[in-house]
């Protein structure tokens, strides 16, 4: 996609540079996380190699939280400033958030079977996480609701993103508020009191950085992809669902 520079200006060039930085950074952090997580960090004394799933499961959950925060923030901006980039940002972040939530659940299930003994149980943490996925899917489905006024629907979608964020603290604090099978948080403690082997900690931090950079990279690219057709110089044939969305909402 080299068409932005032709029609657009320094903004597009700056955005491309930012995308390239994010992509390169994500790649480097991925390499570091792989080395730390698969080679340098020791297996857990009790759980063995299975515990390495933590280096993907936990960053995926954090990325889902961050993505939902972006959905909520973009929703508020959409309600305040009207349609435009905030609408596209909200959608791009919700897509990432839904994917990350699904990944969190899938990896948690793979981790749960050997360690807990079950793939799934309706404990408050797992139930709240499933609810978070449903809220994000509802947010993504709302713009496609048949009939009605698309602009009103876009506002409703944005409001859903803002209100739906309430599920995030429920997911996070579920392990503290209620009895769960899932263990309480490990990492939100004063420095030096985190009960984790330093190499495991380093692997997790590297993986979290990789997920954060990769998530930002994916969302930026997706926001660009969701731009309405006229903003692009040479429009290739065929429509992405995003462009259909924007057109129907315009």
């Amino acid at each position: 996609m080299g068409d932005e520079l032709a029609g657009n200006d320094a903004v597009a060039a700056g955005r491309r540079r930012l995308e390239r930085c994010l992509g390169t950074g994500a790649l480097a952090a991925c390499a570091a996380a792989l080395a730390l997580g698969l080679v340098i960090a020791p297996p857990d004394a009790l759980q063995g190699e299975t515990q390495r799933l933590m280096y993907v499961h936990v960053p995926a959950a954090w990325a889902a939280f961050a993505a939902f925060a972006a959905v909520s923030g973009a929703g508020a901006m959409r309600l305040w400033r009207g349609e435009g980039v905030w609408e596209r940002l909200g959608r791009a972040a919700a897509e990432l958030g839904a994917g990350m939530t699904a990944l969190t659940i899938a990896l948690g299930s793979l981790w749960g079977r050997p360690v807990w003994g079950v793939w799934w149980t309706w404990d408050p943490r797992l139930t709240a996480t499933a609810a978070m996925l449903l809220v994000l899917l509802a947010y993504l489905a709302l713009p496609y609701w048949p009939g009605g006024d698309p602009v009103r629907r876009a506002r409703l979608t944005a409001a859903t993103g803002v209100a739906g964020f309430a599920v995030v603290p429920v997911v996070h604090f579920s392990v503290l508020w209620w009895r769960t099978l899932h263990q309480p948080p490990t990492f939100l403690r004063p420095p030096g009191q985190v009960p984790v082997h330093p190499a495991m900690f380093a692997a997790l931090i590297a993986a979290a950085v990789a997920f954060a950079l990769m998530g930002a990279w994916v969302v930026l690219r997706r926001v660009r992809d969701l731009e309405p057709a006229p903003a692009r110089a040479a429009e290739p044939a065929g429509e992405s669902c995003g462009r259909v969305l924007v057109r129907s909402a315009a």
């Binding site: 020791p42 297996p43 857990d44 004394a45 009790l46 759980q47 515990q51 933590m54 360690v115 807990w116 003994g117 079950v118 149980t121 099978l181 263990q183 309480p184 948080p185 490990t186 009960p195 984790v196 082997h197 190499a199 495991m200």
Partner: peptide, 10 residues
């Protein structure tokens, strides 16, 4: 179902 702690060590 087995609960595990939030601690991880070698």
């Amino acid at each position: 179902m087995v609960k595990h702690s939030e601690e991880y060590r070698a």
